[in-house]
Design a protein around this nucleic acid. Structure first.
Length: 393
RNA sequence: GUGGGUAUGGCGCAGUUGGUUAGCGCGCCAGAUUGUGGUUCUGGAGACCGUGGGUUCGAGUCCCACUAUCCACC
């Protein structure tokens, strides 16, 4: 099912076979929270931008249209016309980042909808049932994502509860996969490591969940306020304690630099809202740095976003035109920018996989970071800080 | 030609009975955003307040002239 094809240091070139096709890793999953990539990107567009996996969200789809609707429509793949692997986030993070008035209990979390404020409850079993209805390829465990500022005692109690929740998730998933009317009886379950920035809690938790024989292991609770150095440190501490014969997933991360650092530390899966959200705001990634297309200096720039880029935006349109579309509030402007950014991320992953296969990931990583730094320092006076991402110089 | 109105950063406007470093929106510039509440948030630069006189301790605010512009009438 999961097979490592090549290793370079801790970095892995691997693949995960699923009922919806084989995922080549390292991979960046494109975020489609409500079963749509924001910015007007369609399922068929994904085929033009090297997409492998789509990430949708349990919490959002439960609220609207409702997982019962998706179940009745034959599952999310059929619903959104997608035949690729889909991973669903469990709703755990959203309960903590979006919902109002949440109360955490042993059984789960009581909270209010961010859409209309009505009362809701979600626990491990609820999350698994919803994800089973959605019938995603990979389901994520329902966890608590404590604040990066939470103290050791709180995080300790939280992690212990997340472990108990994980066991309940696993039991419920096994039960659901065995039911006659379940759409995807081979749904995979990834567990999530927590522990904030406390090495002892992170490692202890990693050991416990590693013994549970899950289909994959995620590192959660990062990129939520801690420094990049702390994030990389946690990865260095935790990944060695996760099973090597299972895929790893760094949740919600991140910048191109974060991803390169994550791959180096043994991560297979990534996801982040950056390429889509930043694309909508005209913030574009290129091999030589990032540009903000909204800037006046691009008004008469007839070059593509990036010279030589093979994405749908760059093959045909100029910076000047796309900037005009963004300025005018035209949907097409956002769409082209999001397509470009996702293409950039997905293509970078392709390059990373190729570099790993050829045993030159270290050189690739350095060249990629150097390239991005070079351009940005020339055009906008900023420098690329490997540890911290883009930073004013 | 006559009567009336308006002239404040690139554009559109606020500026109380004249009183400390003249505000706002858009635009511009720069940040922010990491398991996404769909065009957000936070900063910054930029004006000798049409020109020239006058009144006053003090004028974007009052008076006069000029210039520009708008409306109405002849």
């Amino acid at each position: 099912m999961y097979k490592i094809l090549k290793k370079e240091g801790r970095a892995k070139r691997a693949q995960l076979e699923t009922v919806h096709g084989t995922i080549q890793t390292p991979v960046f999953m494109n975020v489609a929270t409500v079963a749509a990539i924001k910015g007007g990107v369609s399922t068929e567009d994904l085929e033009q931008i090297n997409n492998q996996v789509v990430l949708a969200n349990t919490y959002h789809l439960h609220l609207r249209p409702g997982d019962d609707v998706i179940y009745k429509m034959g599952g999310l793949h059929k619903f959104m016309g997608c035949n690729k692997p889909i991973l669903t986030d469990s709703g755990g993070f959203q309960v903590f980042s979006l919902a109002q008035n949440r109360r955490i209990k042993e059984e789960g979390v009581y909270f209010r909808s961010h859409i209309d404020g009505h009362k809701l409850f979600m626990g491990p079993e609820e999350s698994m049932r919803i994800q089973s209805h959605i019938a995603s390829t990979i389901a994520m465990a329902f966890d608590e994502c404590p604040s990066a500022r939470a103290d050791h005692d709180y995080v300790k109690a939280s992690v212990d509860r997340t472990t108990r929740w994980l066991k309940r998730c696993q039991n419920e998933m096994n039960r659901l996969n065995g039911l006659e009317n379940t759409i995807n009886k081979h749904q995979l379950l990834f567990g999530i490591n927590q522990g904030a920035i406390f090495d002892d809690l992170r490692i202890e938790h990693a050991k416990v969940i590693s013994d549970m024989n899950l289909d994959g292991y995620a590192v959660g609770g990062l990129a939520v306020g801690e420094s990049h150095e702390e994030m990389y440190h946690v990865l260095e501490q935790v990944v060695p304690y996760l099973p090597e014969d299972k895929p790893t997933y760094l949740m919600g991360v991140g910048t191109p630099a974060n991803i390169l650092e994550g791959v180096e530390r043994g991560i297979d899966f990534f996801d982040c809202v950056y390429p889509s959200r930043n694309g909508r705001h005209g913030h574009l990634y290129t091999n030589r740095g990032h540009i903000n297309l909204m800037n006046a200096k691009y008004e008469l720039d007839d070059r593509p976003i990036e010279e030589g880029c093979q994405c749908p935006a760059c093959k045909r349109y100029s910076r000047s035109y796309i900037r005009h579309l963004l300025k005018s509030g035209e949907m097409l402007g956002m769409r082209l920018c999001v397509l470009h950014n996702l293409y950039f991320y997905n293509t970078m992953m392709l390059e990373i996989r190729l570099a790993l296969e050829e045993g030159r990931f270290a050189q690739y990583k350095k060249a990629k970071l150097d390239g991005m730094m070079e351009y940005d320092s020339i055009t906008s006076g900023t420098k690329y800080d490997i540890a911290k991402g883009w930073k004013k110089g």
